[in-house]
Design a protein around this nucleic acid. Structure first.
Length: 907
DNA sequence: GACTCCCGCCAAAGC
DNA sequence: GCTTTGGCGGGAGTC
């Protein structure tokens, strides 16, 4: 504070200023010294041209010289030149010193210019940082510790300490320095830089900064058109919603903040901001980030920036500070981006390319929940201040804690809406949870309550489970997610995909994932970008796509990459086996008894939920006890919990088996129906193939696993025993309409659930198709359009689309043919086959171009189309092809923009 | 006039 | 209670 001021240019101040402690000692001498050193540093080059030693500090003592002329000259000539030279020279510190001296001398005479000299540029943080960096080697020997004493540095650099803090904070964010104690830091140089950048990139990806950036662009784009128009509150919301703002400081395993103090203000800390800022670069494709955009993203909560421009300004200021330091590190450089509105300041990443070795992290993490935490420790460990705002508590670094936090946050969101929503369990989280029992325990109380309640039901379910009907539990979307994750077989299926999709660490994303577990349901939810970020993953256009359970899972986690894989994989049977949902579907088909089936479904869902809960809770023995409670109660002791778990497992296993059998039936039916893709594993539900599920997702589009499963196979009610495929299909078609409220195979999606997921109803459009009437009813949340469409279809024809699907699949009708159950659906060319893809793609294009989703949510076409997207390439390829605009990462947003606006309806 | 960003007040955190 | 940290925003320098 004071000291700083003193030291700085205003030497007078220094003297006057109450210099704190350190100054006191050194002050006088230092200043002299400092001034020299400063000069050297600042203008190492001072020698020739730049002479202008700015010895301001000195000046105070020195009398004015009449050399005002010199001043003039210097001031005129210098700034830039000096800075350049300085920079060059900075590198050559040694020589600089001497030069500086010379300069000083010269200046001493001409000192006058003093003031003029120390042009702002010379005082710039960037320059200061250069000096600072010049003091230490980029790659110090690990053996030796380069300690940094802030006071000394400040003095030497003749800068306020405050300024040093700015630099150090940014360096700290890159782990180039770490704080040892008060006033003490250790210089690490660039040893950890690559790791840090990798970690940051991961985190950035997890946080979907890319999408956020896109969102911002879209937003801007929109603004241009409708300047004042409703400034998409939605978008704003989305921003605000993003947890990113909350993002904690990313730490490397070995490097952590030691001072709690550091944490206290973390949330707003320059460190965190710096990391976020860097993330933006690392994540964004062009690696060019506009200051404005970055500020908006970083503001996060403040989304309402509009409201609070002062904050925005402040953020910008800070970003400049950070940018200056990063520039000094030669990680970024300033550029200008010309936009419609004009030229905007931006920064370009010129640092090292950061290639995520994700392979490990993601893959491992994705596939194996448990490993995730461990394998990826870096990632998650990285996120240090889990609870930045919370302050001190924050520091927990345990991955488990981190995950917990994330899960909790997710839960919060989700929970808000619906108690019933099983959704709260984010897939990712689930995976995580499964991986980490501990975290699971932290599931929000609500969830616990639900679980408990479910547990009770679970008892019943268990009893039922013995019966074939029990199989349902698998199907229950809600339950599904959890159970899979935890466990046993499920993990294999889902976990790989889902998790893969969403690395566990990606807490944010995880929540979205939830649904996948639901397995049975084949659908994927695409989120709008705006919303997306709020959720875990964000996709510019969200759409629900029907996915095979397996697919779903895969999708969920997904990052686009994963998705691709997933989609491709989906074709494979992989997923099927696990999905409980499949079982459901199977069951659904077979069950001729709509009502009963619906009821079953409900029960199943409950059971599933229970299972999920249980799995989660396994980690928590206690929770498990409660959940299992009565039925299992006998043993509530931890030891008992193990038993409980066993039971549960066995139970699950049974249910899975049943579900598998059901799946087999279904699969067989599907296979018959399938066109080219004949499900290889009949056992496994190849719902995917059957279902147009295969879709290429545009690169921009990311899948969000929706928390809720929507049963495609509405048809499936039947008994496991199942009917012939055709029969089943027929039944299904018939049944659906018949289904009354209680959705038999359908997983009830409640608005709350959706909310929980953060998926705006309208987002769900695609679901419409998928949704069975019952489901619709169940999920009022769905966007109006969706609902409308669904409802319409549902009532009269629960789901014409479904019928078409089933019929087509079954082979009753050609792929291209549509059964006009619903006017809406009629359009849809539902071809399960890839060829359809083209159509679908076209349709998609249509959709995308036209902001169908939000606005036209009802339109079945889009939804269906989305469903049918060809598996073709992985998301990117196909998607890109599919969506013209989408291909461009940045530009993508535009096409969707309208959608957003449309989205308004959602609320 | 907009962009940059220095400067230092002042409060929170730490010792 | 003093010092250290660092958020914050006024306002000056630059373009």
């Amino acid at each position: 504070m004071q000291e700083a001021g003193g030291e700085m240019g205003t030497g007078n101040k220094e003297n006057c200023s109450p210099e704190p402690h350190r100054n006191v000692l050194k002050t006088p001498l230092k200043q002299a010294a400092t001034s020299a050193s400063v000069l050297t540093e600042i203008q190492p080059d001072c020698h020739p041209l730049t002479t202008p030693p700015k010895p301001k500090e000195i000046l105070p003592a020195d009398p004015w010289t009449p050399t005002s002329n010199l001043k003039m000259l210097i001031s005129a000539a210098s700034p830039e030149i000096r800075s350049r030279e300085q920079r060059k020279e900075l590198s050559n510190n040694t020589s600089e010193v001497l030069q500086a001296k010379h300069c000083l001398q010269e200046h001493l005479w001409g000192d006058e210019y003093e003031k003029s000299q120390p042009s702002r540029k010379e005082k710039s943080l960037g320059l200061l940082c250069h000096k600072f960096l010049a003091r230490y080697p980029d790659y110090p020997s690990t053996a030796e510790h380069n300690f940094i004493c802030l006071d000394e540095v400040a003095e030497e650099l003749s800068v306020e300490r405050r300024r040093i803090y700015d630099i150090v904070n940014v360096l700290e964010s890159l782990h180039m320095v770490s704080r040892l104690a008060r006033n003490r830091y250790v210089w690490h140089g660039r040893h950890h830089l690559s790791k840090t950048l990798q970690a940051l990139k991961k985190v950035g990806e997890e946080n979907k900064y890319t999408q956020q950036l896109q969102m911002i662009k879209k937003r801007e784009y929109e603004h241009e058109f409708d300047l004042d128009g409703e400034r998409n509150e939605e978008t704003g919301r989305s921003f605000g919603s993003n947890e990113h703002s909350e993002m904690s400081f990313v730490e490397l395993p070995g490097m952590e903040f030691r001072a709690a103090s550091v944490n206290s203000r973390k949330d707003k800390s320059l460190r965190v901001m710096s990391q976020k800022f860097v993330m933006l670069f690392l994540v964004s494709t062009p690696q060019i980030v506009s200051l404005e955009g970055a500020a908006k993203i970083l503001i996060g909560e403040d989304q309402l920036e509009d409201l609070d421009k002062s904050k925005f300004k402040t953020k910008i200021r800070r970003l400049y500070d950070i940018a200056n330091v990063l520039s000094s590190l030669q990680l970024i450089k300033k550029v200008h981006v010309t936009e419609e509105r004009g030229r905007k300041p931006a920064f370009k990443w010129i640092g090292p390319e950061v290639c995520l070795q994700d392979t490990e992290l993601e893959t491992t993490s994705t596939t194996c929940p448990p490993p995730i935490s461990e394998s990826i420790p870096s990632k998650e460990q990285c996120s240090k201040n889990l609870f930045p705002s919370r302050g001190k508590q924050s520091f927990t670094r345990h991955p488990s804690l981190i995950k917990l936090v994330k899960s909790i946050e997710n839960d919060r969101r989700k929970i808000q809406s619906a108690p019933t929503s099983p959704v709260k369990i984010s897939a990712s989280t689930d995976g995580n949870l499964s991986a980490f029992p501990g975290p699971i325990a932290q599931v929000p109380t609500i969830a616990k309550h639900q679980l408990e309640g479910q547990s009770k039901k679970g008892k019943e379910m268990k009893t039922k489970l013995s019966a074939p009907a029990l199989d349902c539990n698998v199907s229950s979307p809600e339950a599904v997610p959890k159970p899979k994750a935890p466990g046993a077989a499920a993990p294999s299926q889902q976990t790989p995909l889902t998790q893969a999709g969403c690395p566990p660490s990606q807490g944010s994303a995880s929540p979205l994932v939830l649904p996948h577990t639901h397995s049975g349901v084949s659908y994927a939810i695409y989120l709008h970008p705006s919303q997306a970020h709020t959720v875990t993953t964000y996709s510019p256009s969200f759409m629900l796509q029907p996915l095979p359970c397996a697919n779903v899972t895969g999708i969920e986690s997904i990052k686009s990459k994963v998705l691709n894989q997933v989609t491709t994989e989906e074709g494979d049977n992989q997923m099927v086996t696990d999905d409980p949902t499949k079982a459901l579907t199977a069951e659904e088909r077979p069950t001729l008894k709509p009502e009963t089936s619906s009821q079953r479904c409900l029960k199943r869902s409950q059971a599933l939920q229970e299972n999920n809960v249980i799995k989660r809770r396994r980690s928590d023995e206690e929770s498990l006890d409660t959940a299992l409670g009565e039925s299992i109660k006998k043993k509530r002791s931890p030891s008992n919990s193990s038993e409980m778990n066993h039971k549960m497992d066995s139970f699950k296993g049974e249910t899975q088996n049943k579900t598998e059998t059901l799946d087999h039936n279904v699969a067989s039916c599907n296979n018959q129906c399938k066109r080219e893709d004949i499900p290889r594993d009949e056992d496994k539900i190849q719902t995917k193939p059957d279902i147009p599920v295969a879709f290429a997702i545009p690169a921009h589009e990311t899948f969000f696993p929706s928390g809720y499963l929507i049963p495609f196979t509405q048809c499936t009610h039947g008994n496991k025993a199942g009917f012939s495929n055709q029969e089943k299909a027929g039944l299904c078609s018939l049944q659906q309409p018949t289904y009354s409220p209680p959705i038999a195979g359908v997983i009830p999606v409640t608005a709350s659930d959706l909310k929980a997921v953060n998926i705006p109803a309208f987002h769900i459009t695609p679901l419409n198709i998928m949704l069975s009437p019952t489901s619709v009813a169940a999920a009022p949340v769905l966007s109006n359009s969706c609902l409308n469409s669904v409802n319409t279809s549902s009532t009269p024809n629960p789901s014409s689309s479904v019928l078409n699907f089933t019929l087509q699949h079954i082979g009753l009708i050609p792929a291209g043919v549509h059964v006009p159950a619903n006017p809406v659906l009629q359009h849809m060319p539902v071809s399960s086959q890839p060829e359809n893809v083209s159509d679908s793609s076209a349709n998609r294009n249509m959709q995308e171009e036209a902001p169908c989703v939000p606005k036209e949510p009802q339109e079945p076409q889009t939804a269906t189309e989305s469903f049918f997207r060809t598996p073709g390439g992985p998301n990117t390829g196909s998607s890109s092809s599919a969506k013209p605009g989408a291909t461009e990462t940045i530009s993508q947003g535009t096409p969707y923009i309208p959608q957003r606006k449309l989205e308004v309806s959602e609320d």
